[in-house]
Design a binder for these strands. Structure first.
Lengths: 206, 206, 206, 206
DNA sequence: GATGAATGAGACTTCATTCAT
DNA sequence: GATGAATGAAGTCTCATTCAT
């Protein structure tokens, strides 16, 4: 009835295949990293022929990029949501930290890839600009800085450097997430949230 | 008479060659990362034959490992030094943060490699144990945690989770270093030190 | 009532499609040669699906063959026409040389393909017999030889080896055409015709 | 004793390998043409590993180019020799025609490649300038034209267009060589030489 | 001990061809 | 009849590693 229903079988198939391939790619790339993952391996896991991956994604690098961009978009949406939920800046930031943990929990295998790319050590960073992925670094810093700024202006926070606070918060969450990945049995992310509050956020309040 | 004096021309040569090769390897690996650096490229830059590299290091992976272990040892020494300088835990931690920045400043090209490896996304983390490099992650966390513990026991710091504080501090410094690498013109690491004090360390004091 | 009148819409469509595809194929093959032209590229230019091309032509090689055969037939007709126009053998041969130039002028992009194939270096010559294209080589030599023979028998030409004369004439025209393609700005084919007369044909006359 | 004796074993090996590979490449390329010959096939015939071919020649196209350039140089030398032997321009040209036949007889498999490239339908002509191979087309025309010019100036030949005569002669020889390749049992190149004299060269004389 | 030519497994990518819709 | 997504064999090229000199 709607225009969206006009999406044909062809297109639906295409999208389904695309997603299945991205799913397989995510698992393989996360396991061994970009260079030690072959297109063959992804194709086998996805149960498609190599040619199909190339028809849909063009190059290995592009498949990888699409994977991260897909994920970055999801993240952006969820984080924006978290950051707009809560009365105070403090609450919003806690929600963000929690959402970041949730995202990684849902898609644990992607965690290493994301950390790698956001830390600037990844594949995509080598070749020129990568506007799609800026979301993951610059823009996130900026968005967080805005929340800190808000809190400062409303008198909720001490007058600190908002961008510095944003960088610090990002660093902490990343490191806690990494720590959590390394020792999933003895460390829960819930404790990370608590500690970030305790060690950092509370101290910002006036 | 001592065994050390027994180092002959042979061994001295070997060591000199080893260092020249590691120097070249550092430059090449830092430029393009592990996978996009070939042994032949390193050999050319070092002005040795590939066979010589294989005689001294066995495999490409091992050459890379030795490089990082070398660096990790330097870092360990410098950090241990910084962490034992200063009267209070607070001062020692500030010295550590400063020393970390200095280390990266001295050897900027290695920075990406280190960040990559310490974030767990590097080559060496893939396969099995990597005790030498734990220095770079686990052990550092532990050493920092000990300092926080000291500060807590002496009443200098609030009774927080010491390991949590260590993780948080590592995360912050890494992120500031990364930020600094990205925007070397507008951001000085000195400001990072100040902000880490302002946002984090001061708030720990009783 | 006749079978020819029985050509229905179906068949007319089929022929129209066939021609559109051949047109596109000609452009693509001429641009990049046989091996560097893909069926998909032809399909896109012709605005048909690849499946349609395969339904009509079976294989890539066959599509190519049909293209050349089509062209060869056109050429045969035009050359036969030229060779039967003119009172003397001399005139007929001049007409032929002119017609050959005209043909290449009309369909310049095909020129390289034809030269390639007639020089025996093309795709179709590789595998076994290729009777359709003999038109383009053996048969042409023979037809020309017949004209020379006629001229000799009628006393118009000296008693030379007719086949040798035919081969020589073909070689000259091909080389002039090639020369002309290489330097279209400074060399006109009209001059080629004059020179072939001057250097070769006139000398044959008694 | 001479400096040439200073060529070491290494270099001698390298040159021998190079030649063996070129030999194998010549056979394979001549059999199936550039595109239908794989580096694998050449490597197997030459009894080297693929990597060795790549170490010595860089790319497939370059291996092919070297092959033709090597050959072109041989040809240039032999033709220059033939063209400088003989008292009259007529004799020199006959010597050239004969030398051309000899060259092709010695290295029959290369004939198709050479014709293909000199006719401008080959692989190397697609991508920009190819100065090395100009020897095979432009320069040869020019050199021949100079001989005709000489003959004209000395009064030995009629005052015809020298470049036209050169083009005509090249075309004839090429076509006779091709004809000869096609029917090696019934047609000897000796007859080609005679006929070129009879049909073309003699008629130029005053 | 040093050398570097030789190796060959394996990676990415293309594209002629098929076949279910 | 027409479509074009899917296929997978095959090709080019790289590079870690070896070993005869």
């Amino acid at each position: 009835m709607s225009t969206e229903m006009a999406i044909g079988r062809r297109d639906r198939n295409r999208i389904r295949n695309r997603n299945e391939i991205l799913e397989a790619a995510q698992k393989e790339f996360s396991k061994n990293g970009y260079h030690d993952t072959s297109i063959q391996a992804i194709a086998i896991r996805a149960d498609f022929a190599v040619g199909t991956l190339y028809q849909l994604f063009g190059t290995k690098e592009n498949l990888y990029r699409e994977l991260l961009v897909d994920y970055a978009e999801q993240a952006r949406v969820q984080f924006a949501d978290a950051l707009s939920t809560g009365k105070t800046a403090y609450e919003r930031l806690v929600n963000y930290v929690r959402a970041k943990g949730d995202l990684f929990e849902d898609r644990i295998p992607l965690a290493r890839l994301i950390l790698m790319e956001t830390m600037g050590t990844g594949v995509l960073f080598k070749s020129g600009p990568k506007p799609e992925l800026n979301l993951m670094y610059d823009v996130w810093h900026k968005i967080l800085a805005d929340i800190f700024e808000e809190g400062i202006e409303s008198g909720e926070f001490r007058p600190v450097d908002a961008m510095g606070a944003a960088v610090a918060l990002e660093g902490m969450t990343n490191q806690f997430i990494y720590h959590w990945q390394q020792e999933p049995d003895t460390f829960q992310y819930d404790r990370a949230v608590e500690q970030i509050e305790e060690l950092f956020l509370k101290a910002l309040r006036t």
